[in-house]
């Protein structure tokens, strides 16, 4: 088999996941796109392992490790998303802007944002 087939498929899957990470708004959909990117890397690892006929089978062992790390990552990630949802009433990553840099000055932004920031949270909690 030509090596370009799995390599190109892995590239396209990775870029699909990249688009999903950048464009999605729900945190769980972002996690799904991360899974797609990890799977693209796994496909590359397996293809190159089979191509090189590695005696240590480093590619396949690393693929197994990547799958296990991805399982741990999805567990922790979903726990964090559920915690954020429980505290904020939303898993919309566009609205979680507490750590964002304000474009205006430091003192004006602090005084302007402090009363304004809790408003969407209380509204979301009321709906939740």
């Amino acid at each position: 088999m030509h090596l370009a087939y799995p390599a190109v498929l892995a590239v396209l899957l990775f870029c699909t996941g990249l688009y999903g990470v950048l464009a999605r708004r729900n945190a769980i959909l972002v996690l799904m796109s991360v899974e797609l990117m990890l799977n693209a890397v796994n496909l590359n690892l397996v293809a190159f392992d089979v191509w090189l006929r590695d005696t240590l089978h480093a590619g396949q062992a690393l693929t197994l490790f990547t799958i296990a790390v991805a399982a741990a990552e999805i567990g922790i990630g979903l726990a964090i998303v559920l915690l954020v949802y429980r505290n904020r009433g939303s898993s919309d990553i566009d609205r979680l802007r507490d750590l964002a840099e304000r474009p205006s000055g430091p003192d004006g932004a602090g005084s302007a944002d402090a009363p304004r920031q809790p408003q969407p949270d209380t509204g979301a909690e009321a709906t939740a």
Binding site: M1, A47, V50
Partner: peptide, 27 residues
């Protein structure tokens, strides 16, 4: 996001195809 992903896909496909043009996996 579409622009970034499209540019990355085009660049990576070009590089990968150019690099592994004459490489075959023995199955």
């Amino acid at each position: 996001a579409l622009t970034v992903a499209g540019a990355a896909a085009a660049a990576l496909v070009w590089v990968v195809v150019d690099a592994f043009r004459a490489t075959w996996i023995d199955l």
